[in-house]
């Protein structure tokens, strides 16, 4: 029972990271109707930027600020302005392919410009464990879960309880009507991309002390988050959230009770089942389009 409880907590912590990245998929989908295949690399990169700034001689606190600002500017504003906007007018598929190219570019740039080796990344949370219902549970797992949930709840509150958030929602649902009603659509879309970058930033700082900062981290996280977004429902934030936790739990339980070799296969099986049974995802909304 102790082992099961520990695995549940560890699974929720992993799932919280997947949820942060999966919400990014949802946000980009809602605003540009495309899939950002570089989402995993978006989670990998902030830690690399911070370490690069630190290697240039900046104190770690300053390096965090410089890395964070650089990332949000480059992959919030820059991503929208220089990749999404020019490619979007050519259709969804070219844009999706462009994000694949971006994924490779970011990964190779991190490998060649920084290091092919993993690097330690400072943790903001102490090591060790605390007793929960008699089982020793990792403090870091709890902290990852709490911070990620706080970020997601904050986002949800912002979207549902503020005027700007509701305007963002209107833009996502129907940009043409929103524009007629006087909504600054371009600004709302930009805000969505900045939020996506900020969520990736948080995920990066939470997971890099555990995974170590490495150019290839995005592969694992990107695939898991993509599966989570589809399983939960690609067009709903709550779907991405539920999908993230579900995949995180399945991932950890499969590693413990099936085998590490098959841990990545089990979520894929779940994905296939969900697509067959409920194609819109567990909490997703059915979308119909005219072709």
């Amino acid at each position: 029972m102790d082992q099961f409880l520990q695995l549940i907590v560890a699974g929720l912590a992993t799932g919280a990271i997947y949820a942060l990245a999966a919400i990014g998929f949802t946000l980009v989908w809602q605003t540009s109707q495309t899939i950002n295949f570089a989402q995993g690399e978006f989670v990998m990169l902030p830690a690399i930027l911070v370490l690069t700034a630190a290697h240039l001689g900046l104190p770690m606190g300053v390096a965090f600020i410089v890395g964070s600002v650089a990332f949000v500017l480059l992959f919030g504003f820059g991503f929208k302005r220089f990749l999404v906007e020019p490619m979007q007018r050519h259709g969804v598929l070219p844009l999706a392919i462009a994000t694949m190219a971006l994924s490779v570019l970011i990964k190779e740039a991190a490998k060649n410009g920084f290091s092919a080796e993993a690097q330690p990344f400072p943790s903001l949370v102490p090591d060790g464990s605390v007793s929960v219902l008699g089982a020793a549970v990792s403090v870091r797992d709890i902290a990852i879960f709490v911070v990620a949930i706080a970020a997601i709840l904050g986002l949800q509150a912002f979207i549902t309880h503020t005027r700007t958030g509701r305007t963002m929602q209107a833009t996502a649902q129907n940009p043409t009507v929103a524009r007629i009603l006087g909504v600054p659509v371009e600004r709302m879309i930009l805000l969505t991309f900045l939020i996506n970058a900020a969520l990736a930033l948080i995920a990066s700082y939470l997971i890099s002390p555990v995974y170590l900062a490495k150019f290839s981290n995005g592969e694992t996280i990107g695939l898991a988050a993509f599966i989570a977004a589809i399983v939960g429902g690609f067009n709903q934030i709550r779907g991405a959230l539920a999908g993230g936790f579900l995949i995180g739990l399945i991932d950890n339980l499969a590693a413990a009770y099936v085998s590490s070799a098959y841990r990545t296969a089990v979520p894929l099986v779940v994905l296939v089942v969900v697509i067959l049974v409920k194609p819109e995802g567990l909490l997703g909304r059915k979308e119909e389009r005219t072709v």
Partner: peptide
């Protein structure tokens, strides 16, 4: 492999007198 939480939990619950670890560098550190 990036996430070793499940493996560490299994090791802990095995309650052995010692743990023998034979992994490559990055996996060892994780």
């Amino acid at each position: 492999q990036a996430d070793f939480a499940a493996d560490a939990i299994k090791v802990k619950n095995a309650n052995a007198d010692a743990v023998f670890v034979y992994l490559n560098e990055e996996e060892s550190a994780r």
